[in-house]
Simulated scan of single mutants.
Amino acid sequence: MMSIEDDYLMLSGIQHFYFCKRQWGLIHINQQWQENEYTIEGQFIHTKVDNPLLKEKRKDIFISRAMHVFSKELGLVGILDAVEFHKDSQGIQVNHKRGKWKPYIVEYKRGKPKKDNRDIIQLVAEVICLEETLGCKIDKSYLYYHSTNNKQEIEITKSLRAEVTSYAKQMHIFYSTGKLPKAEYFRNCQTCSLVDVCMPRLSKKSKNTSNYIKNAIMGDEVL
């Protein structure tokens, strides 16, 4: 989809876009950010994980951390938490390693599994980027949740790939126009670090007022 690296968007932003398009727009278009207890805890966990100097090797497995990846298809670029390489005769060759290896991403999350697919969407986008970077195909990867100490296997399906491609296209349309997505109010808004910047309740009321006035005028015209 994209060919100019300067036009690539942040890979991590696709999770924000899935969860709330306006939140993504405030961060990635308007360059606004506020910390709260959740973002600080998440940064602390990733600081420990995303250390490229931290090496780990087990029998027939080695782990690469803070790997830079990109996708021309999605127009996304970013850094992965951890990639596990498992020795496998059907895998790929890796510099300075004997044999062949299959890569699997392990994306670390602060909390517990979500009811929606926001974490899964981010993981699938990461897989697509890693596939392009390494020139391989990856059929599964993992989400690790810090609060539950649980590693969840995720199958990278065709439908999830198509969903990620659609979100990436939408992100580029919004970004190229510089237009901030409209606010919507959800139950989770109060836990968002940008709630005071977004003001979703006020935006929603303004929208409802505008619709009321518009309908009233149209009603007068009919009468």
Rank of each mutant, 00 (worst) to 15 (best):
Q43G: 03
K112Q: 12
L11E: 09
L160N: 02
S147D: 14
E37T: 00
Q190E: 06
N150W: 04
R98E: 15
E107L: 11
Y142A: 14
Y167S: 11
Q152D: 11
R161E: 15
Y104M: 07
E5D: 12
I156V: 02
Q190D: 14
E221H: 12
I40V: 04
H28S: 09
K205E: 09
L160T: 06
M2D: 11
A66T: 01
I138K: 14
K55V: 04
E5V: 06
K112A: 07
S159V: 03
E184T: 02
K48L: 05
K21C: 12
H86F: 10
I173S: 06
S12E: 07
A82D: 02
C136V: 09
R65P: 05
I61T: 05
E37M: 05
K48Q: 13
Y185R: 07
V127T: 09
L160G: 09
K72M: 11
T191Y: 13
E163S: 08
R98I: 05
K59V: 03
V77C: 03
T148P: 10
T209W: 00
K102M: 13
H146I: 12
T177E: 15
R110G: 05
V69S: 13
L74M: 06
P103G: 02
Q15D: 00
E56K: 00
K214F: 07
I79P: 04
T39V: 01
S12V: 11
D88R: 13
H146Y: 14
R22Q: 12
L223C: 08
L76P: 15
D6M: 01
Q43S: 13
P52N: 11
K205Y: 10
I63C: 06
Q152F: 10
L76E: 15
V94F: 04
Y18F: 03
S141I: 02
S12P: 05
K214N: 06
L53R: 04
I154F: 08
R98Q: 10
F19A: 00
Q170E: 09
S176Y: 05
F44C: 07
G219P: 02
M1C: 08
R161M: 02
V197I: 00
S206T: 05
R58V: 00
I121P: 15
H96E: 04
L160W: 12
K100M: 10
S12M: 08
V77P: 01
K151W: 14
W33G: 04
S176L: 04
K115F: 02
R161Y: 01
N208K: 11
F85I: 03
S12R: 01
T157K: 12
A216S: 05
V94L: 06
I121N: 00
K100V: 05
E155W: 08
S141H: 01
K115D: 03
